[in-house]
Simulated scan of single mutants.
Amino acid sequence: MSDGVKDLVVVEQFLNTLDERAFSWHGERHTGNDGLTSVQALSAWLKTHDLVGAGRELRASDLAAARALRAGLRDALTGDDSARTARALAPFPLVLAPDAGSGGLRLVADSGTPGLDVLVETVAASVAGGGWRRLKLCASADCRWAFYDTSRNGGGRWCSMEVCGNRNKTRAYRRRHAD
């Protein structure tokens, strides 16, 4: 797995802090939840993913920025409109800065919100590199789970063929064969 894909996995996990799934599977009812309900929850998530170091206290404004970024990125994944991604990143300014490691330039975010800059930089780099088009929301209306599409042609629609793909294909089959 390339570094860009590994980095997008963290963005995928960030997007999935909002779980909108609302379906039954094998008799179990899944109800969604929001993993970013408090400053403490955001801090714990960022620390778990090594995105913010100890000693930096987050504020309510940081939580609001994180939730706005998540909402904007999820909205950006709902269509092929690149302007949506640009709008999602607009509140998080990006600049080119010297990269000491390569001697070239790299994108750097400086939003003032600890931990979010890495996510913003990852999204911007993946957009520039073409990997962003592989990050998608499940096409199932009662799921909307973010996933990285590993299909050969990039045409995957479901977070899981075993769950969402199967449920939706079964529904379509039943509709076609209804009397």
Rank of each mutant, 00 (worst) to 15 (best):
V123S: 02
A83T: 13
C164T: 07
L94E: 02
T150Q: 12
V163H: 09
L96I: 05
W145K: 09
G155Y: 13
D117T: 10
C138Y: 03
S102G: 11
R157N: 08
A125P: 03
G165H: 00
V108M: 07
T113C: 12
P98Q: 09
S140M: 13
R152G: 04
Y173N: 06
T78R: 15
S160Q: 07
G165R: 00
A141I: 05
R87C: 14
R171I: 13
W145Y: 12
A124Q: 00
A124M: 05
V120F: 03
W132T: 03
S126H: 12
R144Y: 00
L94P: 08
R152Q: 11
V118H: 14
G131C: 09
F92L: 03
R134I: 07
S160L: 00
M161F: 04
A139E: 13
R174S: 06
R167Y: 08
M161K: 07
S102P: 05
R167F: 04
G104A: 10
R176D: 10
T170D: 07
V120P: 02
G156Q: 05
S140F: 05
S151D: 06
A146V: 06
V163N: 12
R175T: 13
A83W: 06
L135A: 08
A124D: 00
D75Y: 11
F92S: 04
D142V: 08
D142Q: 11
V120L: 01
S111E: 04
G129L: 10
R157F: 03
A90V: 07
E121V: 02
A86P: 01
G165A: 08
L77D: 09
D81G: 02
D149Y: 03
K169N: 12
K136H: 09
R175E: 12
T150H: 15
M161Y: 09
L105S: 09
R152E: 10
L107I: 10
G103S: 06
R167P: 02
G79E: 08
G104D: 08
V127Q: 11
W158G: 00
S140D: 15
R157D: 00
T113V: 12
F92Q: 04
R144K: 10
S140A: 15
L119V: 07
A178D: 12
A141E: 13
D117S: 10
S140H: 09
L137T: 05
A141C: 01
R87Q: 13
G115L: 00
D149E: 04
R175G: 14
D80W: 10
L135P: 05
A139D: 15
N168L: 15
G156T: 06
L135V: 04
L116P: 05
G156A: 11
C159S: 09
D149S: 00
L96T: 13
R176E: 10
V123E: 02
N166F: 04
T170W: 05
T113S: 14
D149L: 02
R134D: 09
G101A: 15
P98N: 05
F147G: 02
